[in-house]
Design a protein around this nucleic acid. Sequence first.
DNA 1: GGGGGAACGTTTGGTTTCAAACTATTTGCG
DNA 2: CGCAAATAGTTTGAAACCAAACGTTCCCCC
Lengths: 184, 184
Amino acid sequence: MVPPSKGGRNPLRNGRVEGAGRAPTATRATTRGKSRARTLATEVDLGALQNFIGFNLRIAQDASFRVFARTSGQKSIRPGRFAALMVLRDNPNITQSALGRAIARDKSTITPLLQDLQRRGLVKRTRSTVDRRSVTLTLTAAGERALQELMIHARDHDRKLDAIAGPVKAEFVAILRKIADELV
Amino acid sequence: MVPPSKGGRNPLRNGRVEGAGRAPTATRATTRGKSRARTLATEVDLGALQNFIGFNLRIAQDASFRVFARTSGQKSIRPGRFAALMVLRDNPNITQSALGRAIARDKSTITPLLQDLQRRGLVKRTRSTVDRRSVTLTLTAAGERALQELMIHARDHDRKLDAIAGPVKAEFVAILRKIADELV
DNA sequence: GGGGGAACGTTTGGTTTCAAACTATTTGCG
DNA sequence: CGCAAATAGTTTGAAACCAAACGTTCCCCC
């Protein structure tokens, strides 16, 4: 299942990273056993790091985030905003706190995020009459429209990820979910 | 393989998130088909989001990062610093740029990071005599010692992640690596 | 051998994020 | 009932990050 990365193009390859073009210094010191036949002195040894789930989680998330943001075109809606809009659409009249819990963001992050979305006319915020502490949130028509377009982009983006995950996508996602869920 | 999350403790559960304790408003509007028998009105529907790899990547990375940072004890060495130290140990005399490429961080992020590590006496930075543009980096004895301790913590942390990934860890990591590698 | 372009590191400016402190409201318990 | 504790949202301060612009140094090629 899923053959090991067969030399993709960009940064990480077999635990080594192509280095500084010419790397003047770094004349290969102490590489912990493992004599290498003929590797240019321009690579970086990731050592134990390359087997840590945490590290790989980060670089993968990073790549996904960056590509989504770069190709999201039109407005500068990054993954965070997109997730918020999605939850808002599926949960009209949700509160800010509940939204924050849903997308794993602190409430102090949610406040300015929503103020921005409101400024753009994508979200309506009204003080709840039932509980005057809270704010009820709904997508505006413009918000629905914007989300529609973003959905296309997001689906496109995730299709690329799906292609990489291959037939084990479901299990792959299940593990990610378990990590978020069970890691205290 | 890997039975689906069987109701873990914290935030995400079966695509729903426990909400605002009492959630005064939000009396369940438009939940897109799917009549639910008896779910409290206090949950959040993640909708399509819960199947996006990108979204799950983020919440998993987030959880991992947070737990690592919270339990790293002693000094405030977060995953970023830890990864830098690891690479530094395995690649003496590496340059800042090469380090940045290895751990997927911009060079403008690396500069202050290393200045901090230097201030703490964990890293030595010396202008290269071979190429006077670059700085050669090495771990100090104190750096080695600090890393030693951090390794224990990191291994501990990753053991938890390993336990969650289960027997398919290798494939799981391979997919993460492919995402970082092939997603342009 | 001289100059254009590339690469190294730094600086600056902006974004996203959390944590903690704070105000306003609501709820629960005694 | 009445007050203590919890909750909603905001503000403030700090950290980590990127992107772009910049000065310095190096290298390739004419």
